[in-house]
């Protein structure tokens, strides 16, 4: 067991960084903002990659742009606006909340609400059916059959 754990630990990747360019940041806060921004901006060419992970030339251009803007004192919002102006809302991995994306943002909650209503209706229906009227008593023939069936179970 100990050996297994040890070998599993050895297999654990120690670092998972993908970006290759080395930027000198003026302070750690800017660096953290850079990491966050590049992880949230989508690469226009290599789709389903963010620009932090992609090695394509366009992603490295965009990283450089983000770096230069941050070092020049731009806010996160300014960087995001810069990208959206050029590449459209597509580059945002976290879409903005507007009329176009309401369904995307609030749809899941709507579905959840629908689900809750359905569950409530079903359970209320069932409860009503259970409490509705006393159950019919078994007549003699049915009782005899039931006993027989129960007897059968006991035999086996």
């Amino acid at each position: 067991m100990k050996h297994l754990l040890l070998s599993l630990l050895l297999l654990w990747p120690l670092s998972v960084t993908a970006a290759i360019d080395a930027y000198e940041f003026s302070d750690p806060v800017t660096e953290a903002r850079f990491q966050e921004l590049t992880a949230e901006l989508r690469c226009p060419k290599c789709q389903n990659n963010n620009i932090a992970d992609s090695n394509s030339p366009i992603a490295s251009d965009l990283r450089r742009e983000v770096y230069l803007m941050l070092e020049a004192g731009a806010t996160d919002q300014e960087v995001v606006n810069f990208m959206v102006d050029r590449y459209g809302e597509f580059v945002l991995y976290r879409p903005r909340v507007n009329e176009m994306t309401w369904l995307l943002w609030y749809g899941p909650f709507g579905l959840l609400a629908v689900g809750l209503v359905v569950v409530l209706l079903v359970s209320r229906n069932r409860r009503r059916r259970q409490s509705a009227g006393p159950q019919r008593e078994l007549d003699a023939r049915e009782r005899e059959r039931l006993n027989k069936l129960l007897q059968q179970d006991k035999d086996t």
């Binding site: 251009d61 965009l62 050029r86 590449y87 459209g88």
Partner: peptide
């Protein structure tokens, strides 16, 4: 440098 390309939103 690709600056104009960037301003145009060229991605390929």
């Amino acid at each position: 440098e690709g600056r104009l390309g960037l301003d145009l939103g060229v991605y390929g």
